[in-house]
């Protein structure tokens, strides 16, 4: 424990409106904290910079899974356990449930939230590749109002997002149009459980007689943010899976990824394994 907790302020308003009001009014910026699986680690290590925090834990307005005929809407403060236990999510968005299942241990899934995982904006986070592959939308809220944007536009640069200072991530929307799509997700971590990913790939695709009709690829740890691999997708669209297509796709992957050497892996390993994973998926089509 390398921080002095007496130097930190934490407030826990009872409603979302109250939280938004504080964010709107406060001259010094509050940092939202939900399940604490990221910020409390920083606190323990003595590197939690913000001194004023505002709790979103257990805010009913943010912890929900709403199912409409067209969409599943997941509140930002919904835990990974909530997601794993939800029958519609597990049935229709199985790779999201799967990604939730390897986001830390059970204890951390009981506290960690989908919104926290996104807003923390780690390039290695577990749920973003899947949300990118599903082409999710994110809804942002402030006292100024509500706006919904495609999730693919949310991450701007390393650890920077489209959230304004007074804004909160409210929810994530997944369209219920996955019928007929094939999905794939695989995380390569430092070990089987409780691991930060070295590389992860999620794919949602459809094909007709061996020709790829649509494909979306989300990836972790290959760029400075969670990323859609658009060039790779383009190289595969309307193509039959042949060795030549695969070779082109592999080249596209290398062209659009900028992985790094870090404490967990090497850049070279990351891009080749990403290509291997995508090839592994293509071979199953």
């Amino acid at each position: 424990m390398r921080s002095n907790v007496t130097e930190y302020e934490l407030t826990a308003p009872r409603s979302l409106d109250a939280v938004l009001q504080i964010l709107a009014d406060s001259p010094d910026r509050y940092t939202p904290i939900a399940g604490g699986t990221e910020l409390m680690v920083a606190l323990g290590a003595g590197r939690l910079q913000p001194k004023k925090l505002i709790s979103l834990w257990n805010l009913k307005e943010l912890r929900f899974i709403e199912v409409t005929p067209d969409a599943v809407i997941i509140g930002a403060a919904t835990t990974f356990t909530d997601i794993r236990k939800h029958p519609i999510v597990t049935a229709e968005f199985s790779i999201l449930a799967q990604a939730a299942s390897w986001t830390g241990s059970i204890a951390n899934q009981n506290r960690g939230t989908l919104g926290g995982n996104i807003v923390n904006a780690s390039p290695a986070a577990d749920s973003p590749p899947v949300l990118l592959a599903y082409d999710a939308a994110v809804t942002l809220v402030s006292t100024r109002g509500i706006r919904t944007i495609p999730y693919r536009d949310f991450h701007i640069s390393y650890k920077r997002t489209d959230l304004a200072q007074d804004e909160l991530l409210h929810s994530i929307t997944l369209s219920r149009n996955m019928h007929g799509y094939t999905t794939y997700v695989r995380k390569v971590g430092t070990r089987n459980a409780q691991a930060i990913s070295k590389v992860a790939v999620a794919i949602v695709a459809s094909s007709n007689h061996g020709v790829i009709e649509s494909i979306r690829i989300g990836a972790a740890s290959l760029r400075e943010t969670p990323a859609r691999l658009v060039a790779t997708e383009q190289s595969l669209l309307k193509q039959k899976i042949t060795p030549a297509t695969i070779a082109k796709a592999r080249a596209a992957i290398l062209s659009e990824t900028i992985p790094i050497d870090d404490i967990r892996s090497t850049a070279k390993y990351r891009s080749v394994v990403a290509a291997n994973l995508i090839e592994e998926f293509l071979q199953t089509l």
Partner: peptide
Amino acid sequence: QMTNYIMPTSAD
């Protein structure tokens, strides 16, 4: 840190 020094878990 235990996050970066990788010892086997029950799943490994």
